[in-house]
């Protein structure tokens, strides 16, 4: 450890303050979800009341169901499409490669509002009724890029001769993919899938624009609750969302970190 590596006190202080700023609001939210008081932000005692209230609300349960359905479906589709694209880019020489790679990044840099609006235009122009189906399509559209980037990174770290060895030994492309590529790749695929699910589960802006009347997902219901600014049930549901997200990210993080023998 040389002197230049030591962290000056002021840097540690700034870092500490930033971490506090980043996490304090959420922690406060979580704490007050257990607060036995409807309106004030003064601590009146511990309760799980607001959580049980959530279970009473049909609209939340239905929305949760829909969020899970949309999340599951869009994750599966975007993982398949994203993995295919990643494999095509990583394993083959294509003249249009630069264009394709640029195309993968377009969804990432496009603001959500623009994404949502343009998809709305498409659906209206094509006469496609807005509903759960359109939500799934929209989620797939923006999730493909994330899956592609994650899977591609993992693919490029993989020894390509493994696949060639399998083919020489008699396995065709399909067999090679399932018996050799996937066992090496699956942490990347799973990580990408988890990312896609999280993005889908949390999405509000795009979903609100392409969902029809009566097809609310969880974030849409939460938005309604936030706008109306009523009761600590919002804190409860926020806590749940936070816990779910943190778990998914933790698992995804461990997967990408796990040193695969290669």
């Amino acid at each position: 450890m040389t002197t230049t590596r030591r962290l000056p006190a002021w840097i540690i202080a700034v870092t500490g303050m930033v971490y506090f700023f980043l996490h304090a609001p959420m922690l406060v939210l979580v704490i007050f979800s257990f607060n036995d008081s409807k309106f004030s932000t003064e601590w009146s005692g511990f309760t799980l009341h607001w959580y049980t209230r959530l279970l009473e609300r049909d609209d939340i349960l239905v929305a949760l169901q829909r969020s899970l359905l949309v999340g599951g479906a869009s994750t599966v589709i975007s993982t398949v499409l994203g993995t295919l694209l990643a494999m095509g880019l990583a394993r083959h020489r294509l003249t249009a490669r630069t264009v394709l790679e640029g195309l993968v990044y377009v969804p990432v840099v496009t603001p959500e509002i623009v994404c949502g609006i343009s998809l709305l235009l498409l659906f209206v122009a094509m006469g496609i009724p807005l509903g759960t189906g359109t939500i799934i399509l929209a989620h797939v559209a923006f999730n493909i890029s994330y899956v592609t980037v994650v899977v591609r990174a993992r693919l490029e770290g993989m020894d390509q001769s493994l696949e060639e060895a399998a083919m020489i030994l008699g396995a065709d492309e399909w067999t090679t993919f399932w018996r050799v590529t996937v066992p090496q790749l699956w942490p990347g695929i799973l990580s990408g899938a988890l990312l896609a699910f999280t993005m889908s589960f949390d999405d509000f802006v795009i979903t609100s624009l392409v969902s029809g009347p009566g097809t609310a997902t969880l974030p849409i219901v939460v938005y309604g609750m936030v706008r109306k600014n009523i009761e600590p049930s919002i804190n409860a549901i926020s806590t749940i969302v936070l816990v779910v997200t943190t778990t998914l990210i933790y698992v995804s993080d461990r997967l990408t970190r796990s040193p695969k023998p290669s």
């Binding site: 959420m26 999280t198 949390d202 936030v226 926020s238 936070l242 990210i249």
Partner: peptide, 12 residues
Amino acid sequence: PLWTSYLVRTFA
């Protein structure tokens, strides 16, 4: 925080 729902964080 990066992946936590932006809606939830804004509400915080």
